[in-house]
Structure formats: C-alpha cells, structure tokens
C-alpha cells in the first residue's frame, strides 16, 4: 500500500464510527522502490490529497524527509517539493502492518502490501 492510497482509506463503515479518517499506520515492513518522477502528475495529485494526512502517514513510517508542514505556493515550479511529495506518495510502501481506526482502535491488517478492510457481520 502506497501512501497515496492510504490518503483515501477510511473506517467509516464500522458501526458507531463517525469519520474514521485518517487511519493510523503501524508498519512492520516498509519497502522503498524507485518510481519515475513526473512533476506534472504530482502537481495534479496534490489538490486531490489531504496533505496533513500525508505528513502524518510519512511520520508513522519515518519518511517525512524534507516535507514542509504546509503546501507551499506555486507548487508547479517547486521541483524540490514535488520530488519530496513524489517520494512519500509513491515510493514508500507498507508491505506488512496494521491500519488502525482512529475512533475504535479496530485494526485492519496489511499483508503483502494489501490492506484487508473487510468487517465481520456484527461490526456493520
């Protein structure tokens, strides 16, 4: 699971959970792979993500690097920033770990990079 995908996952489907976002990450195995950098693509993705959630996710994994606390202005021309975001969103992957619901503490295991978000019948 890449952090770009994590940015879009929630546990709202759990009974009693109101927002269920963002999910905490407890990672036991993190893989870093090189992905081709496309600045135009990253600039298009930034408005689609919750940047503060990305920062927190990167913190959980120890991959914040030089990511600033806020999205700077004129993102399109800021190659250094785009590269940092690219790395956090696409190059860092959780192979094994847990996603944790922020409200209920319910854990969703990630195995071989695939989070299992399925609930038992009594949880919905």
């Amino acid at each position: 699971m890449k952090l770009l995908t994590h940015n879009m996952l929630s546990s709202k489907s759990l009974k009693g959970v109101v927002v269920g976002y963002p999910l905490k990450i407890e990672a036991y195995d993190v893989k870093v792979t090189e992905v081709e950098f496309n600045p135009e693509f990253i600039a298009k993705v930034i408005p689609k993500i919750d940047y503060s959630v990305l920062i927190r996710a990167a913190e959980y994994l120890g991959h914040v690097g030089k990511l600033p606390g806020h999205v700077p202005e004129n993102v399109e021309k800021n190659t250094d920033f785009l590269k940092e975001v690219h790395h956090a969103l696409l190059e860092v992957e959780v192979v094994k770990g847990d996603l944790v619901c922020p409200e209920s503490g319910r854990r969703f295991p990630i195995t071989d990079g695939i989070p299992n978000m399925l609930l038992n019948e009594d949880e919905v």
Partner: peptide, 25 residues
C-alpha cells in the same frame, strides 16, 4: 498484484466491500 507485476505496471490493491472504505472525495 501478480497480474500487474507480471505486466510491469503498478496497481495498489485493497480488500474491501464495494466502496465501503474509501474516504469520499
């Protein structure tokens, strides 16, 4: 996962019921 790797593309996979665990945006 296997199919995407075999064909050298990246697909992130999440096991869920329909759209249940996607943050609606």
């Amino acid at each position: 996962k296997k199919t995407s790797m075999l064909n050298k593309v990246d697909v992130d996979v999440v096991q869920m019921d329909l759209l249940n665990n996607l943050h609606s945006r």
